[in-house]
């Protein structure tokens, strides 16, 4: 098993508040790793540290073989990141967004155009390459944001609540993209508030008040907490209340 993310007592404090408290875990190549927790549990903080966007207070982590504190640039080149408020340029066209993000990663124009054709083709979205992003439905924007996060062929992609607010079919079409990427060896690190989506992950960690309270396969977690769904596991851990 090749390890692509490993953290050791990774901690972030804001003043007296400990947002992420000594979290230690590993993620394997090609794994779909679900990173769950209630609002304010410290997920986004942890994710921002792993992406090299925020310095830890103490502890360490390596992502794609690079130290998140000392080698932030190499980390950034090897990961893709899709934030919950995905950062597409609404007043640029789809193609212009591809060229912009490709340019940021120093891809050649020819390579960008080739991947644009390939990615939009797979999504059935070639007919909107010259449309303004602002004119697209939310579900299309999400797929587009995922494609852009994958444009430079990262080893790991971080997805922060990628499927909020869309219909159940669009949500599952998005998960088809995730499965396909994982099948091709890309490691997926994903947060979600949909507990059915937690079941789609190979392993799931649940964070409560900055600490990882549980980490295992969905099946083992259900057994361990004697409940029939990940929602049950989550309710038990996150607030200590049973759903039954």
């Amino acid at each position: 098993m090749e390890v692509v993310i490993s953290t050791d007592k990774l901690t972030k404090k804001f003043g007296d508040f400990v947002a992420t408290n000594e979290i230690t875990f590993e993620v394997a190549k090609g794994e779909i790793f679900g990173f769950l927790g209630a609002n304010g549990a410290g997920k986004t903080t942890a994710m921002r540290m792993l992406c090299g966007l925020l310095k830890p207070s103490y502890g360490s982590a390596s992502v794609a073989g690079f130290d998140i504190e000392k080698q932030t640039e190499q980390v950034k080149q090897n990961i893709g990141y899709m934030s919950q408020k995905f950062s597409l340029y609404e007043d640029l066209t789809v193609k212009e967004n591809f060229r912009f993000y490709g340019g940021v990663y120093k891809l050649k124009r020819q390579v960008i155009d080739q991947r644009l054709n390939e990615m939009l083709g797979n999504l059935g979205m070639l007919n909107v390459e010259n449309s303004l992003v602002a004119s697209l439905p939310l579900g299309w924007k999400q797929k587009l944001a995922f494609s852009l996060a994958m444009l430079h062929r990262p080893k790991i992609v971080f997805l922060d609540e990628p499927t909020g607010g869309v219909d159940p079919i669009t949500r599952r079409q998005f998960w088809d993209l995730i499965y396909e990427a994982a099948h091709n060896g890309v490691t997926i690190f994903v947060t979600t508030h949909y507990m059915d989506e937690a079941e789609y992950c190979d392993r799931v960690s649940i964070m409560v008040d900055g600490v990882i309270k549980a980490l295992d396969t969905p099946e083992n977690l259900r057994k361990q907490f004697e409940t029939d769904s990940m929602d049950g596991v989550f309710q038990l851990l996150a607030r200590g209340t049973s759903t039954k």
């Binding site: 919950q84 909020g164 607010g165 508030h193 607030r239 759903t243």
Partner: peptide
């Protein structure tokens, strides 16, 4: 209007 979008499952309950 979508009072619980983006809210975690415990708070939604």
């Amino acid at each position: 209007d979508e009072p619980t979008t983006g809210v975690d499952p415990v708070s939604r309950k």
